[in-house]
Computed example of a mutant assay.
Amino acid sequence: MSSTLPQDLPIHEAGDPASRTVLVLHGGGGPQTVAPIVGHLAATMHVLAPTHPGWDGTPRPETIASVADLASGYLNRLLDDGEHDVVLIGSSIGGWIALEMAVQAAADERYAGLIGAVVDIDGVGVVVEGEPIADFFALDARGLAEVAWHDPERGYLDPEKLTDAQRANQQANGRTMAAITGTGMNDPALLGRLGAVQVPVLIVWGESDRIVTPAYGRAVARAVPGAQFVEIPEAGHLPHLEAPEGTWAAIDPFLARD
């Protein structure tokens, strides 16, 4: 499997290029949902935060048709750029991409030393018996806030207050997400493949997440050799937005030790 990302893919860069590189991978809500992670890590690391192909009006080539394709594309871009020991941090779908990258890297000697660690924040992507992923595509704005946020009022975005352009962009992002992840937002084989991961992994989870529950997150952690699991109080699917200080308290020591 070998995919290539568009050469003009938007990649926000922050921090000192001489520092260790961290690739920050956003979820279905787009790059703005991981902006706090970018801002926090830019003080100590070299941050790369791409916009996935097909999100926010970017083109998506036919060769990028799955999360596995995205993962392969990002691995090849990092390799072509001469990177090594890269930290992957992914939120939601981004967490799925990060784990898929770690699995692919472990299976291909071309990527030896390329990935150094993974932080998966409330990532979807696996199938856990008894812990289904919420049907994101069936939820309206109110329903999404209820399952994704500890404080639903804080997370609710009134569709009536969106501009036509914002609404069109949101709908286009949803179509891209469905095309890449499938309507179930999972790869039935991924959980069994996580045992191949060879780098330190931290699984961070909001205790109030009802898109994918903490029990789901613990199952992911059990499947990855040596993975750590940290639950963030008073936070849902995006703990870095609802409880940033608690999220940094989990991530920073992990990165300092790694």
Score class of each variant (00 low, 15 high):
Ile251Thr: 04
Ala18Phe: 10
His26Gly: 12
Gly143Tyr: 08
Asp135Phe: 13
Ala102Asn: 08
Ala102Gly: 12
Ser66Ala: 10
Val127Gly: 00
Ala71Gly: 05
Glu83Pro: 08
Glu100Ala: 04
Trp149Ser: 01
Ala141Ser: 11
Ala235Ser: 04
Glu100Ser: 10
Thr247Asn: 00
Trp248Glu: 13
Val87Trp: 08
Ala18Glu: 15
Val199Thr: 05
Glu146Pro: 09
Pro61His: 09
Pro225Trp: 04
Gly54Ala: 08
Ala141Trp: 05
Asp69Cys: 00
Pro17Phe: 12
Ala189Met: 07
Val118Glu: 10
Asp164Ser: 03
Ala196Asp: 11
Gly27Asp: 02
Gly29Met: 07
Gly206Glu: 12
Thr33Gln: 10
Leu190Phe: 00
Gly30Tyr: 01
Val22Cys: 13
Gln104Asn: 06
Ile203Lys: 02
Pro132Trp: 12
Ala49Glu: 13
Ile37Pro: 09
Pro6Tyr: 02
Val103Arg: 01
Gly39Glu: 15
Ile232Ser: 03
Ala249His: 04
Asp16Lys: 03
Leu144Lys: 10
Ala43Cys: 13
Pro214Thr: 04
Arg218Leu: 14
Ile211Phe: 01
Ile211Leu: 07
Thr181Cys: 13
Gln198Thr: 14
Ser72Met: 00
Ala98Gly: 11
Ala105Cys: 12
Gly54Lys: 06
Pro253His: 09
Ile97Gln: 00
Leu99Lys: 02
Val118Leu: 09
Ile211Ala: 03
Asp108Gln: 02
Ala168Val: 06
Met177Trp: 14
Arg110His: 13
Ser19Asp: 14
Gln170Gly: 10
Ala227Tyr: 00
Ala117Thr: 13
Ile97Tyr: 00
Ile211His: 01
Asp80Ile: 10
Thr163Gln: 00
Pro61Trp: 04
Gly116Met: 06
Ala102Cys: 12
Gly236Asp: 02
Asp69His: 01
Leu23Glu: 04
Ala250Gly: 08
Arg154Asp: 02
Leu25Gly: 08
Ile115Arg: 06
Val212Ile: 12
Val147Lys: 03
Thr163Leu: 00
Ala227Lys: 01
Ser92Gln: 06
Thr63His: 09
Ala112Gly: 12
Ile211Asn: 02
Ala189Trp: 03
Gly130Lys: 14
Trp248Arg: 11
Pro53Gly: 09
Ala102Phe: 08
Val199Cys: 05
Ala68Thr: 08
Val147Pro: 01
Ile97Trp: 00
Gly236Tyr: 05
Pro61Gly: 05
Glu13Met: 13
Met45Gly: 08
Gly217Gln: 00
Gly130Pro: 15
Val34His: 06
Asn169Leu: 14
Thr21Lys: 00
Gly125Met: 05
Gly130Asp: 15
Pro152Gln: 00
Leu70Glu: 02
Ala250His: 07
Ala138Arg: 12
Ala106Gln: 05
Gly184Asp: 15
Ile89Asn: 01
Ala35Phe: 13
Glu146Trp: 03
Thr51Ser: 09
Asp151Asn: 11
Trp55Ile: 14
Phe136Ala: 15
Met45Ser: 15
Ala215Leu: 10
Trp96Cys: 14
Thr63Pro: 10
Ala134Ile: 03
His240Cys: 11
Thr33Ser: 14
Ala189Gln: 07
Ser72Trp: 00
Ala138Gly: 14
Ser208Leu: 10
Ala256Asp: 15
Tyr156Glu: 03
Ala42Ile: 10
Asn76Trp: 03
Pro233Ser: 01
Ala49His: 11
Gly15Phe: 08
Pro6Gly: 06
Gly246Met: 03
Ala141Ile: 03
Gly217Lys: 01
Val118Ile: 13
Arg142Ser: 07
Arg257Ser: 11
Asp8Lys: 09
Gly94Ser: 06
